[in-house]
């Protein structure tokens, strides 16, 4: 469905991506894990055409995706849930969702809204509330809901767990699972919380310093001991193994 071939990107002199290739098949949940600054968000931003690639090829459903405008990408059905959620704070929940449906026909609005409310009942309760006044978890639900309003074929999720409590993260990830089961969404997920991401995903890629260093089925990656170092880096060396394990259990 989505294919990246040898994609490179840079910010000025800094190389963010170096010859990245990855595939996402229809109906799959694929995660991209890696440390801070590994290039995970850049990879998503290249796909959504928020950041221009320097080289390589991105195809979506067999069509070239690179060098289109961000809005043209949205119209093709590739929707990004941005890092840090970025809900519209001065708009109500309902208005945020209406913004999500901006590119969609009026007739599809009501049924889509119902589906989003079914997935996140909390949003239905809060529909009149200003988005800026909601908790981080609710804002993340809203950000995902807003993206769903645009009928994504492929949903790009950038760090949905960022700054959220473990219980809330579990809630969000459960919703993502239902999202695939009920709405047939394909998902490309970028996460620092590798354990949670690998538990959800079918397959995973590990990104380090702008390059893919490892890939495979999520269950396999989860067992891989070298993976730990690839994205936990120094932090792992500092914390004792026991501490680490217990904190990871909490995250799950």
């Amino acid at each position: 469905m989505l294919a990246l071939r040898d994609v490179s990107a840079r910010y000025g002199a800094i190389r963010a991506l170096e010859g990245v290739s990855l595939d996402v098949a229809p109906g799959e949940i694929v995660c991209l894990i890696g440390a801070n600054g590994a290039g995970k968000s850049t990879a998503l931003n290249v796909v959504s055409n928020v950041v221009a690639a320097r080289g390589g090829e991105v195809t979506f459903e067999g069509e070239r995706l690179l060098a289109r405008s961000a809005s043209a990408t949205v119209r093709r059905g590739v929707i990004q849930v941005p890092e840090g959620r970025l809900v519209f704070p001065d708009l109500t929940v309902l208005e945020n969702l209406e913004m999500g449906a901006y590119t969609q026909a009026q007739a599809r609005f009501a049924p889509t809204l119902e589906a989003v409310f079914a997935l996140f009942p909390r949003l239905a309760e809060r529909r009149k509330q200003l988005a800026g006044l909601m908790s981080g978890g609710e804002q993340q639900m809203l950000a995902i809901g807003r993206a769903l309003m645009a009928h994504p074929k492929l949903l790009l999720l950038d760090e949905p767990s960022m700054g959220l409590a473990p219980l809330v993260i579990a809630d969000i990830f459960r919703a993502l699972q239902r999202l695939r089961a009920e709405l047939g969404c394909t998902i490309l997920l970028v996460e620092q919380n590798a354990r949670a991401a690998l538990a959800l995903a079918d397959r995973g890629y590990v990104l380090a310093n702008g390059r893919i260093t490892k890939s495979g089925p999520a269950a396999e990656l989860m067992r891989d001991s070298t993976i730990q170092e690839a994205f936990l880096g120094k932090r792992r060396a500092k914390a004792s193994p026991d501490q680490m394990r217990s904190s990871e259990r909490v995250m799950l």
Binding site: V50, Q80, P82, L86, F88, N96, Y102, T103, G132
Partner: peptide, 18 residues
């Protein structure tokens, strides 16, 4: 509404195809 969204976050507004 689009203008108010713009005030909230330009990146997110662009990301919705606006």
């Amino acid at each position: 509404r689009a203008l108010r969204a713009l005030k909230g976050s330009e990146v997110a507004t662009a990301g919705l195809g606006i």
